[in-house]
């Protein structure tokens, strides 16, 4: 409760950090803000080349099958890679002035989330250009799915950013971890490739049901599996609660450890 009240009090700081991050992210680069779109498109191109030309997966409209999963994945992966040093990056401010430290992960998660929303504009553009169409009745399900993912990513950011302060190696391990995690999630392949009997364990990865839900809504144009979505919600909330506890505990000595 104290946390929510303080975060509300500091809402202008969160907003200003988000604005600064969105504006500053590509400052000084020629294409500027366009990188928000170009980056996922380039990744999409590479994976599509590999998995539909070289390793033929036999999935119809593979690029869309991939794209609707890749965009949320990039949002999640940000919590592992750049998110892990978001506290380190604000060293000067933390050592010198008080503000609720939770403001930083919240602001960072929000700006990554906004980036994902911008990328979804491209997803819908692709859907429109390729005349694939959307099912308007299931489209609103995107809102709870995105909300669940926001909770998950926020929780991850709380954990990775605070632990990295005490153990700087984490920053380097995260690159590999994020790659492994991606292949353990149904990003480049469909859930039909999971061996029988493994599914139950596979779904303990909260990103699995979340990605499947995005894909159900945008690719298969059907309702997401509510059981799986419930599981994802439960897991995400647990990650967030653990994240808050860890962050609360570790943030007390940030100013000394930085």
């Amino acid at each position: 409760m104290r946390l929510i009240r303080e975060l509300f009090q500091y809402r202008e700081m969160i907003a200003s950090l988000v604005r600064k991050d969105l504006k500053g992210r590509y400052k000084g680069s020629v294409l500027g803000f366009l990188w928000t779109f170009i980056n996922p498109l380039l990744q999409l191109l590479v994976y599509t080349m590999v998995f539909s030309v070289i390793l033929k997966s036999g999935i119809e409209n593979y690029y869309l099958h991939l794209f609707v999963a890749l965009v949320p994945w990039i949002f999640f992966a940000s919590s592992l890679t750049t998110g892990s040093h978001l506290i380190l990056d604000q060293k000067n401010m933390i050592k010198k002035i008080y503000f609720p430290r939770e403001v930083l992960p919240v602001a960072y998660t929000t700006s990554s989330f906004c980036n994902m929303l911008f990328s979804f504009v491209i997803v819908f553009a692709v859907i429109a250009v390729m005349r694939i169409g959307v099912a308007w009745t299931v489209l609103p399900w995107l809102i709870p799915v995105m909300a669940i993912q926001y909770i998950l990513v926020l929780g991850m950011n709380f954990i990775t950013s605070s632990v990295t302060v005490y153990c700087r190696d984490l920053e380097h391990i995260m690159g590999v971890l994020s790659m492994a995690w991606m292949y353990l999630s149904p990003v480049v392949y469909g859930v039909q490739f999971i061996p029988q009997g493994w599914e139950r364990y596979y779904m303990l990865n909260p990103m699995a049901p979340i990605i499947l839900a995005y894909r159900d809504i945008l690719y298969y144009k059907k309702m997401p599996d509510l059981g799986q979505l419930g599981l994802a919600f439960g897991l995400s909330v647990s990650v967030l609660l653990i994240g808050i506890l860890v962050f609360e505990k570790l943030s007390k000595r940030f100013a000394e450890e930085l």
């Binding site: 009090q9 809402r11 202008e12 700081m13 907003a15 002035i97 503000f99």
Partner: peptide, 14 residues
């Protein structure tokens, strides 16, 4: 605006 927001002021207060 940035600096005052770190002190916990809202946009309106600033």
């Amino acid at each position: 605006y940035t600096n005052a927001s770190i002190f916990g002021l809202t946009h309106k207060e600033i």
